[in-house]
Structures are given as C-alpha cells and as structure tokens.
Design a binder for these strands. Structure first.
Lengths: 246, 246
DNA sequence: TTACATTTGTTCGTATGTATA
DNA sequence: TTATACATACGAACAAATGTA
C-alpha cells in the first residue's frame, strides 16, 4: 500500500514527529535490531508516505539522540554499545591526567532479591517485586577503582544467570542488547560524596573512612522505560568522573 | 553586495559549516550581543549568498549547541545566561528529593594573584600570570551548601572589582556577558570526592573530615577560549549533582 | 582496476502554516 | 488587520562514500 502515513494527521501532531515515533515504535518492537541496517530512505518514504525532507528530519533527531547512526554510502544503522561505538558515553571514568582506558570487570556477587524502597522508586516497581542484584568490580591498569552495585527487574531479564554475566564477551549494555533485546539509550545520574565502609575496603582496597564518589544511575530504554539501577562507588585518588557541556 | 559568500569554496569545506563559522565569528566579534536578535533568515541568506535550507542547517547546529535560540514569529536570538534561560544547564545542584531552586550567593573573598600551576594549566596561561581569585558561598533555603573558588585571567577581566561582584544583580555568567562581553557557552567538569578541611568547616558549617563533592570546572567562550576555572566543594548530605545523558 | 548501482550528504528552491508584534 | 519571522512539508539535482560485479 502506497497510502499516506496515517498516524500523522490522526494524532494531529507534526508529521516528522509522528514518523520519528513510528520509527521508535519499530525499534522497540524489535523490527530492526542493534547493529542492523534499517531500510533506505527511499523505502522509508514509501512506507510512511512522506517526503525525503520530512523523513530526514525525523532521522536527524534520532541520530542526535544516539539512537541511529548514519553512514554515507552504506545506510542507517541502529546504534549498539560495542566498544568502538559510544562506550565512553556511559563510562565516564578517566585517570586524573586525562588518560582514557577500557576497564576490566570482575563479577563479585549475584543473587535474586526483592526490590527495596530505593530500587523500586528508581525502577518504577512495587516494593518487593523480584529483581536481580549483582556487583561488579571495575579495574583500570589492573587496580580496582570502582564498585558497581547493579539492580535489574527480573521481569525484563527473566533468564539472567551468574554464568552469563561471568562469561559475557562484550560490554554489559551490549550484553543487554544481545541477550534480552534491551537497548540502553539514556541515563540519569546523581553524584554524591560518601565515606568508604568495610565493603569498600574489601573490594577496592581503600581504608574505611576514605572519601568515595557515589554515583546513582538510572538507565532507560526506548520510551523512557527504566531497566537498570546502579549505585557506583569510585575511588577518586587517581581517577575522576568527567563531563562535558554541551 | 549580493555577492556569494566567499569563505565557502575558498576553505574548501562544507558550505553550511562555513556559514556556521561565519556566524560564530560575528558573535565573537560582538556584532550581535547576548539577548539581541540576529538578522532574519531572509537577510542572512542575502548576506551569505546561500539558500534558506543551507542557512537553516547552520543555525540548527548553533541552536543545538545552545548558542542561538529561535522563536517563531519573533526571530533568532543570541543566548544569554539569564535565570529564565538555561541557568540550570550550568547549575546542576539539586535537593536530594529532586527539588530545584535558585541559590543565593555571598562573596566571601576577592583578591588579585598570580596563577599557580593548576590554574595556569586549566586556563592556558603561564604560571605567574595575573589572575583574579574570588570565593562565593552558595546557599539553598538559607543554608550554605557549596563553596566556589573561582579564578579568571586578569587579561580578559581587566576592570573586575570586589564591588562589582558584590553588587551584580544577575547570575555570574550573565555578569560576565554584560560587563566584559564574555559569553560562556561550554564547560568541562571533573568530579572527585574529598574530605572537608577547616576552611570548609568555617564556610559550610560541616565538620572537618566530612565527605564533600569536589567539582573542577573549566568554562569556555566561543572557539573554546578558556575564561574561568572554578573549584567547587559541595556538601552532599542534603543535595546532589545531577546529570542527564543525552 | 574499472564501472556501476545504491545509499546518504549537501544545496538548491517553493508553498503553506503558525506565532508574534 | 497586516506584515514579518520562523516552522513544516514538499521535492529536484548533484556530490561523495561504499560495496560489488
């Protein structure tokens, strides 16, 4: 059917916004998966019944939001979390002299649990709902620098196992994509200062009472679906959290 | 002269990028000042000899970078740092329950000095060059929560005085615009954890040894000219630093 | 190596809609 | 009401990058 894209006038919105939402819906449905190419512009304007300019404006916004990636001559792709892509968009820990490095990750704990108040609020769950809790220790240059205490809802990660987490070859967010079709596209972080406790001493090797940077992160997928809550504790004696605006 | 915009083919770059740079140059030259309207699209396409689409693409990027602001029916304006605009783009301190509030500022210290190694590196100066150093105490709900130790190069802030800082009616960055024609459009921040010292105890009222969030910020104007270095110390017992990606 | 088809990138322009003064 | 300004939607033509025959 070459019929005009219907959602547009029906919703009464702006046409390119409707096209954008339709593309987002197709992504959320898994019609096009991370790393895959989406149909060419020519095919999409046929599908949606809009002009090239309108389609490009919709895709422009998705590219600006790091959801799609365009490659001239090749096509438009669904963004992934592979190292080469935008790993450092979500990993903002840097050595104090500015040196950037990929961390090595060690799984320290894993268990099923019921969401506490804080986790429930962060993930939009009811208190007591089933979640997985696991802890990673991240090292840079062989030295532990950050503990990530991660909570995900069981509902969206039904088959998650300790073995999988231990054996995953890629980044965690890339693993979410491959194993569960969950695509992290957005995070909100809140940063505080805290003092190290016995647990930090054991895992990071810092004395109790040392100052640590505490990072509370909520990660979301399409349509702001919250899928991960993470509390990180960073030893800032040699490293720091970096941020650029814009 | 309706002659074609020359810089374009000369530089050999992409036309809309050249237009963008030409607009940035005009802004840096002070041809259009913060808060003012820039010429209409019709006048700009005449001036640069490009099509409406090309001009809009250039302006699109400047809008995305928060340098220009478009208002349908009114015109395109140079962004300011007035409270109504994007104050919270640079002030990211929020109460832990999410409540946002404008801080009150108290100037605690002011003096002329010579740049130390850290300041010189941050601002791209030579060690020993003249700078102004001043300290602000920021309060929320009447309670001090953050100390800002600010350093600016004397070269760019020649006439800066303690009186001016004490009497400025607007935000600090708005004051930079009005008094010195300096427009902060970008910051880079590095966050660490630190322990409170006697100075923090005196100004913030927290006990020595309390954990504080330390924020090192370099603020830049057009063309990445670094114009302010700031070390902040935040009491995170009731507040936190927030961040959204994207 | 070359030639060609495909895909996105850039530039051009027109018509109409919406917001503002 | 009118004029002005930006916003949206349309589409043509050509350039540049890519992959493949």
């Amino acid at each position: 059917m070459g019929a005009r894209f219907e959602a547009g006038s029906a919703i009464g919105g702006v046409l390119y916004k409707d096209v954008k939402q339709a593309i987002l819906a197709a992504l959320a449905d898994g019609e096009w998966k991370p790393g895959e190419v989406i149909p060419s512009e020519r095919k999409l304007i046929e599908r949606f019944g809009v002009s090239i300019g309108t389609l490009r404006k919709a895709i422009d916004e998705l590219v600006a939001e790091n959801i799609l990636i365009r490659h001239q001559g090749r096509g438009t792709f669904v963004a992934t979390h592979r190292l080469e892509d935008h790993f450092f968009r979500f990993f903002r820990i840097v050595r104090q002299d500015g040196h950037r490095e990929y961390p090595t990750v060690q799984l320290a704990r894993f268990r099923r649990a019921k969401a506490d108040k804080e986790e429930a609020a962060a993930l939009g769950l009811a208190v007591g709902e089933a979640v997985f809790r696991f802890t990673n220790v991240l090292s840079l240059e062989g030295k532990p620098v950050m503990i990530d205490a991660i909570t995900v809802p069981e509902e969206r990660f039904k088959t998650l196992s300790e073995k999988q987490l231990r054996e995953r070859p890629n980044t965690l967010y890339n693993f979410y994509q491959d194993a569960f079709g969950i695509n992290i596209i957005r995070t909100e972080e809140r940063l505080r200062s805290a003092l190290a406790d016995e647990d930090d001493e054991a895992l990071l090797g810092v004395p109790v009472g040392s100052p640590l940077l505490k990072i509370l992160r909520v990660a979301s997928s399409y349509h702001d679906e919250r899928v991960e809550y993470r509390v990180s504790r960073l030893d800032t004696t040699g490293h720091e959290f970096v941020l650029s605006q814009p």
